[in-house]
Amino acid sequence: MGTNSPAGGGAVRRFPPWLGTVIVYALSLGCLLWVYHDFDWRLELPKLARVHWAWILLAVACDVLVYFSQAWRWNILLRPVARVPFWRSVQAIYIGLFANEVLPLRSGELIRCYLLTVWDKIPFPLVLSSALIERLIDGVWLIVGFALVSLSAELPKEIEIGVWILASVVAVIGGLVVFSVLNRRFAHHMTTRHRWSEQLRRVVEGLHAMGRSKSFPAAVAASTVYLALQVIPIHAMLQGYGLNLPWGAAAIVLVVLRLGTVVPGAPGNVGLFHLCGFLALHRMLGVDAQTAKSLSGMMFFVVTVPLLAAGAVALATTGSEIREIYHSAHQHRRGQAPTEPLNK
């Protein structure tokens, strides 16, 4: 009896590549339907006329500018391995943000790392190490923020489950990073029989170099500034809707949004973003359901549309399309032939 396995064993069933995308989009659609299934659109239109749009414009400006602090932090992390021009880091980040808004599964993280690799001739695994450290620091701060928020507000069960998952992931990644930082020789003892072993070795070396550098405490401090600045646009939007809530309320919304969207999803985390915003505003801060749903939609607009515009400008300077860069980044990650350098 014939088999599909070249070794004569049972046939290996593989999930079709499109299945994950279908699941992600179905989840996003389900979240949107759950949040807005009873939303009264006719009642909301007159309310929009009473929104203080100056506060909304301030939120837009602050949300766009906050990523300059991310570029500053990124440069500090990369300092032990390369000196990257600040504006080049800014450009790579905004192109990555643009990709996150139009492509699923947060593809912008891969793209921004690839761009610095091509532009500044930094080995891709080293740039990837810096992004990994960024996410680890952010994860630690979010868990700390969750602990503080839980002291002042009752968290929905959905958020608590997400936090435990995040804490587990951060603990595993943190343990690996600490081991890499303290045991540099580990990288040199890894096998070289596999195609990815050299890439992994360089990632470990990058973690070691950045984690033990004198600039690492400055990067942690910059991460604090980066996360704190993200409170400003949320506070501005609360004020724009006439909700005279304290700064702590904006911090609660930020923590829930960041925790709820930490798992890669649909472009812009549509649906999941709306659900987390609604849960934070309605279930935790006591905002009425109609206003909470409206404000969640406004927050998504403020976060998404300006970043699309800024990212489109940054992308236009490269002379390439985002799908072309995405394809090249995946080829580079797999160790295939490098593409021609993009314009800076």
Rank of each mutant, 00 (worst) to 15 (best):
H188D: 15
L182D: 09
F186N: 02
L132E: 07
T192V: 11
V163E: 02
V149K: 13
G145M: 07
R202K: 12
F186Y: 14
L136G: 05
K157I: 06
E205H: 15
V140G: 09
F179A: 14
Y241Q: 09
R201C: 06
Y226I: 09
S223C: 11
L238K: 04
L126P: 12
Q199E: 07
L110W: 01
V253H: 12
G242M: 03
F146I: 07
Q230G: 09
C113K: 02
S129L: 14
Q230K: 10
L128G: 13
V163L: 03
L155C: 13
K157N: 15
L115Q: 05
L116I: 11
L136Y: 04
R185A: 10
T224P: 04
I161R: 06
S150D: 00
V178E: 12
I143L: 07
G248C: 03
I137G: 03
N183R: 14
G145P: 00
R135Y: 04
E154P: 04
S130W: 05
I165G: 10
E198W: 05
E134K: 00
A187Q: 04
I111G: 03
R106W: 00
F216P: 15
R112F: 01
R112A: 00
E205G: 03
V144W: 00
S180E: 08
A228S: 06
R195L: 10
N183D: 04
K214T: 15
I159V: 14
G240T: 10
L243H: 06
V204I: 15
A250V: 08
W141V: 13
G139A: 02
H188Q: 14
S223I: 11
M210Y: 08
L116F: 10
V172G: 09
V172A: 07
E158D: 13
T192S: 12
I232N: 13
Y114L: 04
L132M: 07
L148R: 00
R106I: 03
L142D: 00
L151H: 07
P156G: 05
V181G: 05
